[in-house]
Design a binder for these strands. Structure first.
Lengths: 129, 129
DNA sequence: GCCCCTTTTTACAAAGTTTTTACAAGTTAA
DNA sequence: TTAACTTGTAAAAACTTTGTAAAAAGGGGC
């Protein structure tokens, strides 16, 4: 009986809130009961943020994790991808994907309280160049 | 980690939906009550996909399983076979055989919902990288 | 050998994805 | 307020993957 080893598949619990659901084994994203088609990079980016929901993820961390870029690399591709992700998340986009100015981005579950809107967010890492 | 059970399983349940039926013991494919004549490779390819209906099967897995090719081999024969399969599946082809860009292909049963099914029993492959 | 059928390769075309570019808009601090 | 810097955005360019037609290659039977 043949078995085909097809790679690692980290067991991550699916995400679900009032509007958005994400299944990491099927690579499926559903928004208000409709499938959202994401490209690979869009998916990787969203997956990383959702798996760290509520946490601020610095640009460098996103560029490192999703693109394999080291901090010296100057690129706008992260911004462009965030923009396209937000577009595909429709009207809830800005609620889901927060911009933390000077730092990075944060995914927030739909009803997450936003008491202390990143007041404490002083740059943890240098951004430039 | 994901495993696909792909080997010479002598007891595979026949597949049937509104338009397509497939009998793996007879190696017979019927589309809207008409027999579809497939070549060996076409049959092997379709059988593998149908037996994993709803799952994304990476190109490398298809090339490994149907052709015995290792991932380094560069060939377009998979694409050509998919094309001929789709041709023989007529108008339903694109509904049955989805292209997952950058990854592989997926057979979907005719009325498959385009979002979540929790097929927790069937391990899948991570799409990343 | 030839014939017939299947499979693979070749060579582009078409489609899809990602990155860059260029500038607008927003933010922060002096 | 201005200057310096960061993020948003649209569009183009660069790049990658898939689709397709046609030719070439392979294989079995006669």
């Amino acid at each position: 009986m043949g078995m085909l080893y097809t790679g690692n598949n980290p067991q991550v619990m699916p995400y679900r809130d009032e509007h958005l659901a994400m299944d990491f084994t099927q690579q499926a994203v559903v928004l208000d009961s409709e499938r959202v088609i994401l490209t690979r990079k869009e998916y990787d980016l969203l997956a990383l943020m959702v798996q760290h929901a509520g946490e601020i993820i610095p640009r460098e961390a996103l560029l490192m994790q999703v693109w394999g870029y080291s901090p010296e690399i100057r690129t706008r591709t992260l911004d462009v991808h965030v923009r396209r992700l937000r577009k595909k998340l429709g009207g809830y986009a800005d609620q889901y994907i927060e911009t933390i100015f000077g730092v990075g981005y944060r995914f927030q579950p739909f009803h997450a309280p936003r008491f202390f809107q990143h007041i404490a967010a002083k740059p943890l890492m240098a951004m430039g160049a």
